[in-house]
């Protein structure tokens, strides 16, 4: 009895330590995320669920042409947006990190510069780039016309095919510092002896990179990939700043997050009445996509560890 009471007392204090964090996290993060799934089975005006409709919202999203086209369009655009970051941003990051990992004067300066845009608000850089990319007065077209390349001066953000890749590239401009710094830390963590030994054996720089450094970077590559995935499947600010909540021109830059915002939170203009149930469906689907990605990553990371 005495032992039990002591045990309770000893553990009770830990619950007190945990309480503030646990309550905030439960009420303002975990519960809303889980309850969103419940709301996806309801319809209602504004934000109040009134009628249980089962899977009707889900069925509508996939069968009613208006919903289906928007959803599939946003999904496709999000995949493109993510892929540009995954392949272009992360390859550039790896390349910069490789350059920065050798010893020369000024490398701290370059590292600081490459990372700098990541500290700015996405909204601010998005607005700044809309001005720079402005078809008539923007600095880019101004320069192109000044050097006689008039036909290269395009309406960057107004063209259906150009807008999404161009916006993704401005986002790469902002975020490339992240993979750079992470890969750099990974490269600097590789013991020098390993590389020296390979060189003594006559391996070229190219071989040293692909045969030794690259395989050892695998865990970092995994982390960078999953961060890129989660961040870009949620991207909203940059599209909102550069193309508005509707993903202009003609939904060509509409992402899952802007679709979610329009449907579930702001409401389609001009009426502006949010469709809570459908919004919750979109949130739930984004959630499931993210979970699937994270699980694949965890599984891959684990089987990799076992492989070694």
């Amino acid at each position: 009895m005495k032992k039990l009471r002591m045990n309770l007392r000893a553990n009770g204090i830990w619950y007190l330590f945990l309480l503030p964090a646990l309550l905030t996290y439960l009420i303002f993060m975990a519960a809303p995320l889980i309850d969103s799934m419940r709301l996806s089975f309801f319809t209602g005006r504004g934000y109040t669920p009134t009628e249980f409709v089962g899977f009707k919202n889900y069925i509508d999203l996939f069968t009613v042409p208006l919903w289906r086209d928007r959803f599939l369009g946003a999904l496709k655009n999000t995949i493109i947006f993510f892929s540009i970051h995954m392949f272009i941003q992360n390859s550039m990051g790896l390349f910069f990190a490789t350059l920065l990992s050798s010893d020369f004067r000024g490398r701290n300066f370059y590292r600081t510069v490459i990372f700098a845009p990541a500290t700015l608000s996405v909204l601010v850089t998005g607005f700044l780039w809309t001005l720079i990319l402005h078809p008539y007065w923007g600095a880019i077209n101004h320069t192109l016309k000044a050097v006689g390349l008039n036909s290269w001066a395009k309406p960057w953000l107004g063209d259906k095919h150009l807008a999404l890749p161009v916006i993704a590239l401005t986002s790469v401009w902002q975020w490339v510092g992240m993979p750079t710094v992470l890969f750099l830390a990974g490269l600097l963590g590789i013991p020098d002896e390993l590389i020296e030994a390979a060189r003594v054996d006559g391996a070229s720089s190219w071989n040293v990179f692909w045969r030794i450094k690259f395989p050892l970077l695998k865990p970092v590559i995994g982390v960078v990939a999953i961060l890129t995935f989660v961040d870009n499947f949620n991207a909203f600010d940059v599209i909102f700043a550069m193309e508005g909540a509707k993903g202009e021109p003609g939904y060509a830059t509409d992402l899952l997050a802007t679709f979610f915002y329009r449907t579930g939170i702001a409401g389609e203009q001009p009426a502006g009445i949010p469709n809570m149930g459908m919004g919750a469906v979109i949130a739930t689907l984004i959630f499931l996509i993210l979970m699937a990605g994270v699980l694949i990553w965890l599984y891959a990371a684990r089987s990799d560890e076992e492989g070694i």
Partner: peptide
Amino acid sequence: FIAGLMIPVRLGTIDLIRI
């Protein structure tokens, strides 16, 4: 707690507005 690292709280916005 750690599970929250990969999940953006944004997805719970409709509920947060209600709260």
